[in-house]
Nucleic acid binder design. Structure first.
Lengths: 208, 208
DNA sequence: GTCTATAGAATGATAGAC
DNA sequence: GTCTATCATTCTATAGAC
């Protein structure tokens, strides 16, 4: 991707995440890049094409992260439960809080009621995918004896991810408007601590 | 509100909830109502004015519901914990799942990153308000001895509401695209059951 | 790859007749 | 309150010179 194309991409992500796809004229994108509209069309086939490339990028980045998460799954043997969840949250935020990815997440939220591609990504990345991975992690932890035997990994994954997702959602609104996020960030850690302690087996507890 | 004005309002809510404010031309609203654009402007000062009236309506409806929720708080004495949470969910859904209210919720989601009013409603209704009410309910239950003494009502309210909110969010996406919602609805009830059983004191447990 | 110039359609909104 | 007719902008996109 050429330097100019990259700048168009970045500017488009920035503006569309603030005003929505229909709220940003190509004029405004080109203007903020410092080129004319006709030059922009030399890099992208259409306005819609820019959005497609944004979604492509997001999916590719998520795919990369998921691979590293699976790698993390295999490293679970070397970590205590507490350590693992802390690393897990940091890993989670390392992706979702990257400025560019956070902006695209917002775009997906804005477009998912009218754009099928945005809908598919939202359902996959925000809900399904994350939950399955956490479920796998709980299963592995259970095999290791780190968490109680009588708990259902799938249910735990649900409790773990849904609340975090809503908090992440609140976090996105607050950062969008430059409002304080310390309260919601504290809630995220409180939630993780709660799940961690709720699931911890007697054996796992000794590690703390 | 005249019959025509009401129809404009309903059609506008319907279309804007699907395509976003910037995605719906006034022509399309007028066309679906069966009048000309110029006639539409006889009922609303501007396109923006329609959005304002939509937000006004939403806030007024929420205000009404909240009053009935406070009434519900005072009725807690007559119900068991289990009964109370079941009624609470039904009450919650009775508002949020009303077609018109559900559509406006979607509009708020779509506009909250660019419209201050939508942002304020989102932060208030989706996050702050609901949580405070649930916190009060947990406090009252604790006083009655229905839930364990050592639990923090504020934290419980957080655990209760955030997960439900994300599930409601998923529910909105699914219904928007006519996809099956039975799985996520089951999750809602599972979550409530979990919180209900997690918090239940020995005394409260006997009621079941 | 960038520009100027412009096409051609769609936009929000108004004037004024009925 | 509704209509026809119209305005002034704004929109996405293209042609063709440099």
């Amino acid at each position: 991707m050429s330097a100019t194309k990259q700048r168009i991409f970045d500017v488009a992500v920035d503006l569309i995440s603030q005003k929505g796809f229909n709220g940003v004229p190509v004029r405004e994108i080109a203007g903020n890049v410092g080129i004319k509209v006709s030059s922009l069309y030399n890099h992208f086939q259409s306005k819609e094409d820019i959005l497609t490339k944004i979604f492509d990028y997001y999916e590719a980045e998520i795919e990369k992260t998921m691979r590293s998460k699976e790698y993390l799954e295999k490293r679970i043997d070397r970590l205590s439960a507490q350590e693992f969840w802390e690393k897990g949250l940091l890993n989670f935020q390392a992706v979702t809080l990257k400025p560019l990815m956070q902006k695209i997440s917002k775009i997906i939220l804005l477009e998912m009621f009218r754009d099928e591609r945005a809908r598919d990504i939202a359902l996959d990345v925000f809900f399904s995918r994350q939950q399955k991975i956490v479920e796998t992690i709980f299963m592995l932890m259970q095999k290791k004896g780190l968490i109680k035997d009588n708990l259902d990994p799938r249910f735990l994954a649900m409790e773990y991810t849904y609340a975090l997702l809503a908090m992440q959602f609140e976090y996105d609104i607050l950062t969008n408007w430059n409002l304080a996020t310390d309260k919601v960030r504290k809630k995220m850690f409180d939630h993780i601590k709660f799940i961690s302690e709720y699931t911890k087996s007697a054996k796992g507890g000794e590690n703390k």
